[in-house]
Amino acid sequence: MMTKAPFEAVVADHGATVLRVCRAVLGSHTDAEDAWSETFLSALKAYPELPAEANVRGWLVTIAHRKAIDVTRARARHAIPTADLPERAGPDLEPSDDAVWRAVRSLPPRQREVITYRYLGGLDYATIAELTGGTAAAARRAASDGLSSLRARSAAFTLGIDE
């Protein structure tokens, strides 16, 4: 029988990855940190039932992706329409990463999901296909299309991604 690691080891091993995923989806550091906290709280709650042989990283990345989307929706609900859109100063954002996040966020959902899982979550295409449905080949194609799109915006340069 496999033994399950103490949850502390899960946080230590995957905390940084989950924060990267949350930031990729949300951009804002404050929102990303809310999503990070909700991800690990939710994971802690479900952890005793997680099978010992489960892919913990993939499981966390999936929760993180869902929580990040929850935060996005909550923000959209609370948004007040205004005639004049203020220039987003974004003191929360790292200038160097801002463009990348914006570019990733502007991709179609399927590409954004696959890129986030692949390049932030570090998951392989077979695992991504398990999480999102479809085949590994389709996931690879979506990532490739997403990267072309990012490259067209010169963001891939910042990503430093090689196919």
């Binding site: 990267r20 930031r23 550091h29 570090g122 990503l159």
Partner: peptide
């Protein structure tokens, strides 16, 4: 290529997030 953001900056944030958790 997973290094989208500066690791040192992440390492600085994580202890605060851990305390919140």
């Amino acid at each position: 290529s997973t290094e989208l953001t500066d690791s040192a900056e992440l390492a600085e944030r994580l202890p605060r997030l851990h305390a919140r958790l």
